[in-house]
């Protein structure tokens, strides 16, 4: 969920966020002009021990003030996302988890778009708890494989506990075989997924003993 950001803001920043939230509550369209200004108004420094930055949390907070739900909320968020620069797109993706109950599936087009990009920041941000919970199984597996393939660390990817099924383990094992055949490094992140399915693990390590996870 969104870490509390107000304690990190200056007086001017707090005033800006208070006013921005009030404007957005009164008129959802006001978010279009406020959203890009968040970093300039409130700062972009890190929020310690959260992995978030100030502008990211301010943008996500601003979205929770929108007096909309369902399709109407999804359409406005998609508009913000699609006309947003990378920081704004990350802000929309970061807001999805907190809006899950109000959005239903209406935020999925945003998650799917982010997963189609080649920007690893967007790919990683698409697999927060919203995307992890709502993507269909095939899309979730492809997304996790894309993370491993592009070097997005799986420790920030949500949903593996419940969704890392045998088919995903099979895909990871095949990816390892492909990399091994090419003489390239096998990313360590495949192992937590493969190890959940001992028979897939056994098959892989029998075939390629040098690849056992313990050896890495």
């Amino acid at each position: 969920m969104i870490p509390p950001v107000r304690p990190r803001l200056t007086e001017d920043g707090t005033r800006w966020l208070d006013a921005a939230e009030a404007k957005v509550k009164a008129d959802p369209g006001a978010v279009l002009a406020l959203f890009p200004a968040a970093g300039r108004a409130c700062g972009r420094g890190p929020l310690p021990e959260t992995g978030w930055t100030v502008d990211l949390a301010v943008r996500a907070t601003l979205l929770t003030a929108l007096p909309l739900d369902g399709e109407a909320l999804g359409e406005l968020l998609f508009d913000l996302y699609t006309h947003g620069d990378t920081a704004e797109r990350l802000g929309v993706l970061a807001g999805l988890d907190a809006l899950d109950g109000r959005l239903g599936d209406a935020g999925l087009p945003i998650v799917r778009d982010a997963l189609r990009t080649s920007d690893t920041r967007l790919i990683g941000a698409a697999l927060g708890s919203y995307g992890a919970a709502r993507l269909p199984a095939e899309a979730y597996r492809q997304a996790v494989l894309k993370c491993v393939f592009t070097g997005v660390p799986l420790d920030t990817v949500r949903g593996l506990d419940t969704r890392a099924d045998r088919e995903l383990a099979r895909m990871m094992a095949d990816f390892a075989r492909e990399r091994a055949a090419a003489g390239r490094e096998v990313p360590a992140d495949i192992w937590p997924v493969v190890e959940r399915h001992p028979e897939v693990l056994a098959e892989l390590t029998t075939e390629l003993p040098s690849l056992s996870s313990g050896a890495l």
């Binding site: 300039r40 080649s118 920041r121 592009t150 070097g151």
Partner: peptide, 24 residues
Amino acid sequence: SGRLDLADDAAPAADYAGNTIKRG
């Protein structure tokens, strides 16, 4: 413009590998 951001100008925005520009 008040928007030029040249701080930390040598740090890549994120690590990058795979089927993209750095190609590993």
